[in-house]
Design a protein around this nucleic acid. Structure first.
Length: 492
RNA sequence: GUCCCCUUCGUCUAGAGGCCUAGGACAACUCCCUUUCACGGAGUAGACACGAGUUCGAAUCUCGUAGGGGACGCCA
């Protein structure tokens, strides 16, 4: 590795859907690698598949990348989508002149040729090859046409793809950063298309050209591109461009060891964001799928990831995406958050659920202190805080049995009387426990007959978080209202 | 079919010929803390895919076998 070459890496997804966790990991590794080496992280859009690429997908992916905090140094501006950086455009659909010019160069030097084969002809060849158990490669009859011959036919209005002419058989050696030496025989691929007959370039072609022109020094990408690398190496060679270093990351599998896909449940970053996961936990967890910290750390901040990341500790075998561990990583990050920040980040979820909670910072602090150990993700706060919301008490159906007990009314009346005697806005845990004891003695009710009616009078249902935690978080006024609501129900 | 890649506890991994009676983390289980839960603490159980070879010595090197994945597109 030459130290003179500045580190420039890129993440180059195709905008054909949400950002997948696999893509997120690729992006993260590239980002970490760049930041670790003080290099640049470039975001490029591979939108040459006109049928499947959409601007909406692109916006979704940008939003996900932003959520993860992976900021790029060059590429479309996340807000305006206007290109920023000296090597643009960064959307391949806008670089067609460049590809055209490169294809012409190959044509002129005889390294590529016009191919007039139709889809049907290609299909016939493919089926024939498959039938003979041969690699389904295209053997174009136009391979040896002269450029003049082809141009003559083009002049008649026929369209043609431009195919790269794979040269004599030899081995290509790829020194992969993750996999070590990988040898590809050149006949592994047939003459591949560079430019479609529509003029739109094909992935391998623009990828190689862009990586060269954008001066990409290292390409960290998914394993499925490993065998594509051969074509790209041929292209680099044909243009006499210096080859970047490649590292092919293993794929991420679902619990059934099959490639992670929609049937495994959540596979997009966005789903995890909505489900109340923390971006920093997502980064942390994903980083550990295929990479390990040199000092065996499991919980790492972005800063630590940047400091410790290195391509040497990348693992080449596939990794199963384990949601259980993700949840643990998430809970750990969540509980480490300063309480003020935790509230800030949880609040949108509470508001969305329609909860009405006190604005007093001291109250919020107490609440989080009490509830945070049972939270693994932001959305857990919703159910945890629901009983604290200043909304009319909803008496659940399974409270009916308790409401039917003959001692219930006097317990609640005792509870109410006790509350009224208190002068403070909130009662302390100790006061609550004392009050409970007093009701026990005064009303001569104990055990279930005592606890359950109070519980229903507080939260409207027979089970939930411990009352000694909840009661001190509820204003006396609200407790009284709720007790009245339950009493009114008893009268009916 | 051909080529390429991968294979350590259930899962993520450490491991670069002797430090390995294979270490850590999540999950599981047990106990402690706590008048229930959670958090926390202490433990228990659990793996080198298989077979040959190289070597005084192999999880580590080589070769096979099996299994999994990828590529062979005018998809990326």
């Amino acid at each position: 590795m030459s130290a003179a070459v500045p580190v420039r890496v890129r993440f180059a997804p195709s905008p054909t859907g949400y950002l997948h966790v696999g893509g997120a990991r690729t992006a993260l590794y590239n980002y970490l690698f760049a930041k670790h080496h003080g290099g640049e992280f470039i975001y490029r859009i591979e939108d040459t598949d006109e049928a499947r690429s959409t601007e909406e997908s692109m916006r979704m992916q940008i939003a996900d990348l932003n959520w993860l905090g992976l900021k790029w140094d060059e590429g479309p501006d996340p807000e305006t989508l206007v290109d920023r950086g000296p090597h643009g455009p960064y959307r391949q659909s806008r670089r067609q002149d460049i590809y055209k010019e490169h294809a012409d160069r190959l044509l002129k030097s005889g390294k590529a040729y016009y191919c007039f084969m139709t889809d049907a002809e290609i299909e016939v060849q493919r089926q024939e090859a498959t039938r003979l158990n041969k690699p389904p490669q295209v053997n174009s009859p136009y391979r040896n046409w002269t450029l003049a011959q082809a141009q003559e036919r083009l002049a008649k209005g026929d369209t043609a793809a431009i195919r790269f002419k794979v040269q004599e058989k030899r081995d290509y050696l790829l020194k992969d950063l993750v996999r070590g030496d990988v040898t590809f025989p050149s006949d592994m691929v047939g003459d591949f298309v560079c430019l479609r007959s529509t003029g739109m370039p094909v992935y391998n072609f623009c990828c190689a050209i862009d990586d060269a022109l954008m001066q990409i020094s290292h390409v960290l990408r998914a394993e499925e591109h490993l065998s594509n690398t051969l074509r790209q190496m041929m292209l680099f060679e044909a243009f006499d461009y210096p080859l970047p270093q490649f590292g092919h990351l293993s794929i991420i599998l679902g619990a059934d060891k099959q490639k992670l896909s929609k049937r495994h449940g959540a596979t997009s970053c966005n789903e995890y964001r909505v489900a109340g996961y923390l971006a920093e936990a997502m980064n942390n967890f994903i980083a550990l799928l295929g990479w390990s910290s040199p000092n065996a750390q499991e919980i790492l901040s972005m800063q630590e990831l940047i400091q410790q990341f290195g391509v040497e500790r990348l693992n080449s075998s596939p990794a199963v995406f384990d949601e259980t561990k993700l949840l643990w990583v998430n809970a750990t990050h969540l509980r480490a958050l300063p309480q003020a920040e935790l509230w800030e980040r949880v609040e949108p979820f509470l508001l969305e659920a329609g909860l009405k909670l006190p604005k007093d910072p001291a109250w919020r602090d107490r609440t989080l202190a009490a509830l945070k150990t049972s939270m693994s993700k932001f959305t857990d706060a919703v159910e945890l805080c629901r009983p604290l919301s200043e909304t009319p008490l909803d008496i659940s159906a399974d409270a009916a049995e308790i409401l039917g007990w003959e001692t219930t009314e006097k317990v609640i009346l005792g509870w109410k009387a006790g509350l009224e005697k208190l002068s403070t806005e909130y009662l302390t845990e100790a006061e609550f426990l004392q009050l409970q004891d007093r009701i026990k003695d005064e009303q001569n009710v104990k055990g279930k007959q005592l606890f359950q009616p109070i519980r229903v009078a507080v939260i409207g249902k027979p089970q939930g978080t411990e009352l000694k935690m909840l009661v001190p978080l509820l204003q006396k006024r609200i407790l009284l209202e709720r007790a009245d609501t339950v009493l009114a129900r008893l009268k009916k």
